[in-house]
Amino acid sequence: MNQSPIGSTSVDDHPPLRAVVFDAVGTVLHPQPDVVTAYHEIGRQHGSSLSRDEVGRRFREAFTSRAETELETSDAIEYEFWRYVVGKVFRDVVDPEACFRQLHEHFAQPTSWRFDSETERVLTALGLRGVVRCIASNFDARLDGILDASPVGPLFDHRVISSKIGYRKPHRRFYEIVLETCGTTAAETLFIGDEPAADREGPAQLGCRALLLDPGCSGEENCVTQLRDVLCFLEAN
């Protein structure tokens, strides 16, 4: 039996892959500057005296406070969630609402994001192989504007955005909608992302193949360190 060099999936175990589904933030898309720096700088413009470290601590605490069971969503729900996060981070600004609006708009701007340097190459190679390319994200509708403004955006055949379909990863329905959108079966679909529960365990529960993108992983099953490793996985599977 031929063994894949990445993970433990063998050629004989599955049909050929027909779709690759990419997470957005942390996988193909990265904020510039990073989230904590952006919060710190904008907070200071509104009168905050918090240190960058304290902003980071408060942001992580607020962001991770969202219950894992709160997986139904909408653009309105996401908007209020980010208002909650900003409010938890900045209690010392002059005008909390103005600070929130500026931060929300900041992350809507294409100039506040950069694509991974390997994204275009990987998507182009997949397209030449006839593989369906999908971006599937827990980001909200702001992602559309970011993709529309980038030459990378048109390289995705499909977009699935949680706030537009009503479910966040790792809700089972999210992955079902991705498969319906791509027109593929679970066994024909590969997910890749940087969150273990949302991008690896969630899809795997439906029978999809999935890779965790983690620059620090070393020899871990179904884990890759670079985006281009997706192409190696396809060659082996």
Rank of each mutant, 00 (worst) to 15 (best):
F81A: 02
A38E: 07
H46L: 06
K169P: 10
F191V: 07
E188N: 07
D148V: 04
G193T: 02
T111C: 10
E176T: 14
S10F: 11
H158W: 08
A76G: 02
T64N: 12
Y167H: 13
R228Q: 13
L213V: 09
H30K: 03
Q102A: 12
A108T: 03
S112W: 08
G47D: 10
V122S: 06
C208N: 04
L231T: 07
V178Y: 01
P196I: 06
T181D: 06
G56I: 11
G193N: 02
F63P: 01
F22N: 01
A108R: 09
D34L: 11
V28I: 15
A186Y: 14
K88L: 01
Q45M: 13
E68A: 13
L126H: 08
T9I: 15
K164E: 13
D194I: 12
Q109V: 09
G216F: 14
C217M: 00
T119C: 09
Q205W: 02
R133K: 15
Q45T: 11
S4G: 07
G43N: 02
P110E: 08
A98K: 07
D92Q: 05
F63R: 00
V93K: 10
D144N: 15
P151Q: 06
F139H: 07
G216K: 10
D34K: 12
H14L: 14
P16R: 14
V122Y: 11
P151D: 09
E118A: 05
C232F: 04
V132Y: 06
C208V: 10
V35D: 01
G56H: 09
Y79A: 09
S218W: 01
I161H: 04
F100V: 03
R18V: 04
S137D: 05
